[in-house]
Simulated scan of single mutants.
Amino acid sequence: MSKRRAQQLAPVVEMAERAEREAAVQLGRAQALQGQAEVKLGELERYRADYQQQWMTEGQRGVSGQWLINYQRFLSQLETAIAQQQQSLDWHRNNVDKVRQAWQQRYARLEGLRKLIQRYQDEARQLEDKREQKMLDELSQRLAGRERF
């Protein structure tokens, strides 16, 4: 009986394995997108630092009012881009957390099913061992009974 129950669960396990693999792929994609967002933010921040260093260098030499206005305008745009990229990174981090939780749930379900099947298989094995032992005991008793006559 337990062996048959384990066999009946095989399609359910296959579905759970597919769902877990899909979730793992989605997690990988989400992590890759988060990594890209982190790289882009780092590039923007380095660009800002370089641009600010350029201000320090040019400022020591003296700059025109127009140069200063252009510098401030561009720096403002750069700060906006950095803030937007930070928001994007925050979104990607939250998404990775959600996708990871979904994967963990699917993985836990799959492991639970595997343990259940293992338990059914162990039960079936124990029942079979008991049947064999009973048959051996009965055979042994019969042989012992024949030897008396």
Rank of each mutant, 00 (worst) to 15 (best):
S2V: 06
A6D: 06
A6V: 06
Q7M: 12
Q8C: 05
Q8A: 12
L9D: 04
P11Y: 06
P11I: 08
V12T: 13
V13Y: 03
M15I: 05
A16V: 06
R18F: 05
E20H: 08
E22M: 14
V25E: 12
R29A: 07
R29N: 10
A30Q: 01
A32C: 04
L33R: 06
Q34L: 10
Q36H: 07
A37F: 01
A37D: 03
E38N: 02
K40D: 06
L41R: 01
L41Y: 00
E43L: 11
E45F: 00
E45I: 03
Y47M: 04
A49F: 02
D50T: 04
D50R: 14
Q52L: 14
Q52S: 07
Q53S: 14
Q53H: 11
Q54V: 03
W55Q: 07
E58A: 15
E58W: 08
R61L: 14
V63W: 04
V63C: 07
Q66I: 09
L68S: 12
I69P: 00
Y71G: 02
Q72I: 05
R73E: 15
R73F: 14
F74L: 10
L75Q: 13
L78Y: 08
L78R: 03
E79G: 11
E79D: 15
E79H: 10
T80S: 15
T80P: 02
A81S: 15
Q84P: 02
Q86S: 11
S88R: 05
D90S: 13
H92C: 08
R93M: 05
D97F: 03
D97G: 04
R100A: 11
Q101S: 13
A102H: 05
Y107D: 12
R109N: 15
G112V: 06
L113H: 02
I117M: 13
Q118C: 03
Q118T: 10
Q121K: 10
E123I: 05
R125E: 10
R131C: 08
E132F: 09
Q133F: 05
E138Y: 03
L139K: 00
Q141C: 03
R142W: 02
L143Q: 09
L143Y: 05
A144M: 06
